[in-house]
Simulated scan of single mutants.
Amino acid sequence: MTDAWGQSGELAGTVLCSQGHMNSPNYRFCSHCGSPIGLVPFPADDDGPDDGPDDDVPDEPAQKTRKIALAVGIIAAVVVLVAGGTTAYLLAKTPTEDPAVGTDTGFGSGAPSAAPAAMVCNEPPILEAESLEKTVDGLTVSALFYPGCPGSDVEAGKALRVTVADGQRDIAAGEFDFSGSPMEMKPNAPARRTLVFPDGMYWRTPDMVGGQPQLVAHRDERRTATPDAGKSVVDRVVAAAVAEPEHGSIVGVAKAVLGELRDADLPLLRSAAANRWVPQVSSKRAGLVVGGRTLTDADVLRDHLDFRERFSGARLVYSGQWSTFNDDDWWVTIVGPAWFYPDDANRWCDQQDFGVDDCFAKFVSDLFGPERTTVYRK
Rank of each mutant, 00 (worst) to 15 (best):
M1F: 07
M1D: 10
T2C: 06
D3K: 10
Q7P: 11
S8N: 12
A12S: 10
V15S: 07
C17Y: 07
Q19G: 12
H21C: 09
H21V: 10
F29C: 06
S31F: 09
S31G: 09
C33P: 04
S35M: 13
P36V: 12
P36T: 13
I37Q: 04
V40Q: 13
F42T: 14
D45S: 09
D47E: 12
D50W: 13
D54P: 07
P58W: 09
D59T: 09
A62Q: 12
T65Q: 15
R66T: 09
V78P: 08
A83H: 12
A83T: 15
T86P: 05
Y89L: 15
L91D: 15
L91K: 15
A92N: 13
V101T: 14
T103M: 13
D104W: 14
F107T: 14
G110Q: 10
A111M: 10
P116A: 09
C121E: 01
P124R: 02
P125E: 02
E128N: 05
A129C: 06
D137V: 04
T140Y: 02
V154C: 09
E155Y: 07
G157Q: 04
V162C: 01
V164T: 00
D166T: 03
D166R: 01
Q168H: 05
G174F: 01
E175C: 06
S179L: 06
S181R: 06
E184K: 07
P187M: 01
A189S: 14
A189E: 12
R192S: 14
T194A: 03
F197G: 00
P198Y: 00
D199G: 03
W203E: 00
T205I: 08
T205N: 03
D207A: 11
D207N: 11
V209Q: 00
G211Y: 03
T224M: 08
A229C: 00
A229W: 00
A239P: 02
E244W: 09
P245L: 02
P245M: 00
P245Y: 01
G252S: 08
K255Q: 12
K255L: 09
L258P: 01
D263H: 05
D265F: 05
L266H: 14
P267I: 08
L268E: 08
L269I: 12
V278I: 08
V278K: 00
S282R: 13
V290N: 11
R293E: 10
T294E: 13
L295I: 02
L295Q: 06
T296V: 07
D299L: 03
L301F: 03
D306V: 03
D306C: 02
A314I: 08
Y318S: 04
S319K: 03
Q321E: 11
Q321C: 03
D327G: 03
W330T: 04
W331M: 03
W331C: 01
W339Q: 14
W339S: 15
F340A: 15
D343V: 11
C349W: 04
Q351Y: 08
F354P: 07
D358G: 10
C359M: 06
C359Y: 05
S365L: 04
S365C: 09
L367M: 10
E371G: 10
R372N: 15
R377Y: 07
